[in-house]
Write a protein that binds this DNA or RNA. Structure first.
Lengths: 276, 276
DNA sequence: TGTAGGTATGAATCCGACT
DNA sequence: AAGTCGGATTCATACCTAC
């Protein structure tokens, strides 16, 4: 995948029906303002957690040093927006969530990823932003994660979910009943971003959006949410501030529409077995 | 099991070494004050969540009607302390947690169960009480729970855990690395209390206490934490305000020391299979 | 093609040393 | 002296290399 800028479909192309996916490169709060009211069917996103680092100086460091174990060979690009302290993290989440509230259709669902440390801040921000909080879904990363002597492993991240106001019964019937826990291992080859989620996970989360609907991800990163949306027959709008990632996301979206399914035959078999 | 009062070992019997388990019947905040400083090795408890009712009237109703699915035949005793609103819930949790802080040995671990709705209040209370919050461990109840149209199942409860100050290295080495997620189905036969946890779950959680140590449960209910402690070679202190449950707990503790293992052969096989 | 053994890795954390 | 810095550490898993 190259990092040269090239023309890509925009978010408005998705809304007016001329493209199944669209990306914009820019600061989230600013780009969100350009979307019309009541225009998307679901919000699914994985914002920077601002979790690592005990001290201010740690947060200001490179995200690569912050989250990567000493001795890791392959460096990944740094990502932006991971330098907030706890108070401003909550404030900032409230800001973009209340903007998303405006953009979501009434009754539309939202899903926001967080880690254990920022979970209470995230549920506060969701409610302060005017959304209705309806649950927490753990993502079990399985046992491939750092151990901790004398304590429990940090083996899960969390999905905070809910809706814009009362649920839409018609949409709910189309969506059906979804699992209350995701068990998906992290796959190294599938990580296009330092904190990238597995494609299989996002594919499963995208089921919260009614089929054919538009999913919004204001922190698109390498575009895994958008890929998951396209793989499950939804449309997707993404924003990403780092141009390199925005280009990666565009390449992956384009490739998904050609290949139809990114997974190797082995992965496909594995996840079909797990689903039983 | 009968509900007649009879002499049972007390919490102080455990601390002075004359019994492996002890129970006191009384209001938690009051009974906690009778325990000496720095005297127990772990706190493991499942307080009333005060989560069920959205409105004040719901909270004032019988707990049996609130938590029992329509049509369930066997009524259980109502339990106490489940009528708080959100603010006073946090305040009350802070009160008993700060009393537990005094009683725990330095570096000792704590585990407090909560549901998704009270999770942020619980992490606030833990930290307000002076404890160090170190993580969230999901308990996956597996699929035996109410489905929800158009949304994710509510399939997990959560364990908020941490320590009293910095960890004790010696204790941590004795404990080793513990799993970051519990996957234990709810077993109806194993429920001696309306919100009772599976014995197998509590057995696994008790591993956070160094072998031979004393585990405190200020909301003992039917005594599953105490049974788990005894089954894994720990000692246990419990408080319970409802006398009927306190007697059930005493009977179960006594039976555990005789039988050694409460589980049916089928349950034993099931969990040995799951452990593979 | 299969098996066995070695190594890299992970949305960290801890602790002592230094400024 | 509180704030910073840097090195060591934990183990299940996936992947690679060697036989």
């Amino acid at each position: 995948m190259n990092n040269e800028p090239k023309p890509k479909p925009t978010p408005l192309d998705v809304i007016n029906g001329s493209s199944r996916w669209g990306l914009a490169h820019g600061e989230t709060l600013k780009t969100l303002r350009e979307l019309p009211d009541d225009s998307v069917d679901a919000l699914i996103t994985d914002p920077p957690y601002s979790s690592g680092g005990q001290y201010r100086g740690d947060r200001l460091g490179s995200t690569d040093e912050k989250y990567t174990q000493h001795g890791f060979q392959g460096r990944r690009s740094d990502f932006a927006g991971d330098t907030r302290d706890q108070r401003s993290f909550t404030y900032w989440e409230t800001l973009w969530l209340s903007e998303c509230l405006r953009i979501l259709k009434p009754g539309a669902p939202f899903c926001v990823f967080t880690d254990w440390r920022q979970l209470p801040a995230t549920t506060d921000a969701v409610q302060a932003g005017g959304l209705v909080w309806r649950g927490i879904v753990p993502w079990d990363k399985t046992e491939k994660c750092r151990p901790r002597m004398g304590g429990f492993r940090s083996q899960s991240e969390f999905l905070v979910w809910g809706t814009k106001g009362p649920t839409d019964n018609e949409a709910a019937a189309a969506v059906g009943v979804l699992p209350g826990l995701f068990r998906v291992p992290v796959n190294h080859d599938d990580k296009h971003h330092q904190t990238g989620k597995p494609t299989e996970l996002m594919r499963q989360v995208c089921a919260i959006c009614p089929p054919g609907g538009i999913i919004l991800d204001p922190f698109a990163g390498s575009g895994t949410t958008l890929v998951g949306a396209l793989l499950t027959g939804r449309r997707a709008i993404g924003f990403e501030i780092v141009e390199g990632y925005s280009n990666t996301a565009a390449d992956r979206c384009a490739a998904t529409l050609i290949d139809g399914d990114f997974r190797t035959p082995e992965q496909r078999t594995l996840f079909e077995d797990l689903a039983k």
